[in-house]
Design a binder for these strands. Structure first.
Lengths: 146, 146
DNA sequence: TATTGTTATACTCTATAACTATA
DNA sequence: TATAGTTATAGAGTATAACAATA
């Protein structure tokens, strides 16, 4: 015997949770005039770790060509600024605007309230352990192929 | 102030972990002659909860038209059988074959060994709490929109 | 020669509509 | 009339290749 697995695959457990979270986020973002990618970009820029489009694309695991329309839209709606880099005239420096940060913070607050639908299933200590473990695992996933 | 979030969004933590897991799974599945969807189908059929194509599609959150090519391939490679339902001549009953189960079990064993790259970051008790919490959250995500 | 940002093109994946054979 | 399975078509999303400007 021994043919049935002790537990489901990790990915099989994460997938439905991910689906649920995204489904819950989408109407919130739409209500704030944001797309999923637009929100991801605002979050990345708000962290302040990246300045150029290439660096941004890499940090959110997107192709550099894929984010251009998103950046255009965010710029036109006043959520970000794109200024030429005086030190490298090929590059354009990205910055979230005051308005962009307000919108992002409002959307994020509502999103994290919505996450209580799932996190609320956990006890206080359980939640602490879960989030701590998840943070560590997520950080390692960034270190590329084994 | 209060403009920076206490923590990252749940989805933002799950996304890189999910990416890493899928990237690690893909070469394993390929080595066993399976696609991601083919593997998902074999796992669902092995659980034995569904019998028709429509029920299978729903259980793995896929469109009924989307799985047909996958079922064709799995049938041609002898991983599943499709027999006409004697009680409803419109339907075809799905069943994983002995060969299908062997391949699926082998792939799954290797996949779960690969997951130790992430789960291995956790202590024994931490891992137990994490998996227990994740299982509960994943089950709730299936209950549809709030 | 390599890199930044951009555009145009091709390709993959998925959903939609329409069809058949049953019920 | 509704449903199971199938096919064909169209649409969205993504990657690839090629370009101009700059390093």
């Amino acid at each position: 015997m021994g043919s049935s697995p002790r537990r489901a695959d990790l990915a099989a457990l994460l997938a439905p949770l991910m689906r649920g979270l995204i489904a819950a986020e989408e109407p919130v973002l739409a209500a704030h005039g944001l797309t999923m990618w637009g929100y991801v970009v605002l979050c990345a820029l708000d962290r302040g770790e990246v300045r150029t489009q290439a660096a941004l694309a890499e940090s959110i695991n997107a192709d550099k060509t894929r984010i251009i329309r998103t950046l255009d839209d965010l710029q036109h709606s006043g959520h970000i600024e794109r200024v030429p880099d005086p030190e490298d005239r090929r590059a354009r420096l990205l910055r979230i605007t005051e308005r962009g940060r307000r919108v992002k913070d409002a959307a994020q607050a509502q999103i994290q309230r919505g996450e209580e639908r799932w996190l609320g299933l956990l006890g206080a200590e359980e939640r602490r352990v879960f989030l701590s473990a998840l943070r560590r695992m997520a950080a390692d996933g960034n270190s590329g192929p084994p």
